[in-house]
Amino acid sequence: MMKRTIPMLLAMAAGIVMILAYFFPLLAPLQDKTTVWFNILAAVAFILGGGNLLKVHLKKVSDRREGWAYSMITLAAFVSVLAIGLFKLGVNPLDEFPTQRMAGDFRAEGSGFWYVYEYVFAPLTATIFSMLAFYVASAAFRAFRAKNLEAILLLGTAFVILLGRTAAGVFLTDFLPEEGMLANFRLENLTVWIMNNPVTAGNRAIMIGIALGTASVSLKILLGVDRSYLGGGD
């Protein structure tokens, strides 16, 4: 009862209120309140994530498992950034309220948290994502073989899009006229046409599929048919 039925009823009630509020504007204030609660819980989920990270890495350090030194670095980075952000280290007060240092903008230029974003978070994440350029290229080189029509279409489109969005594409088909039917085959125009028509068609079908899938899964959860989110056990 406490472990399965009540949470299931809670999910059903919360979800049905959100749906009914769309059809009955009288319920809109309730929907607004529920959305705020949802946002609060989503923010608490980050705290839960942080707590879990602490738990896992502290255990690894205390057990001296392989790579525990890196766990120490993770913990040090976590605690430092948390302290800098929560205590608003290096934050200047607002001009209107000079005595309230904690009222200052924690992301303002020059604050401790701004330093973390500017010199740690942004460069590290951008570099990690940029490295995918190498891996995508090497994986594509190894995996893509134009051995059937489907593969040719995929490779051909990628090639046209890549060329069409660069100066090289414009240069390569510069000999074609700028007006008339043949202008459509200039790489920059062909790219636009591909994006506006076949790619839009494919994306629309995918979006419609996702929407139907989302709606049906939502209904299954709200009607209590799918209870997998409650996990195993009683």
């Binding site: 949470p7 809670l10 769309y22």
Partner: peptide, 30 residues
């Protein structure tokens, strides 16, 4: 196991919101 209650609330609200928004924005508007 008590955390199932807030988890269920989060999932319920998300399903309710996504049910309407996905049909409205991703289905009908496509």
């Amino acid at each position: 196991w008590i955390s199932r209650w807030p988890t269920a609330f989060i999932i319920g609200v998300f399903c309710g919101l996504r049910f309407i928004s996905s049909l409205e924005a991703d289905f009908l508007s496509q």
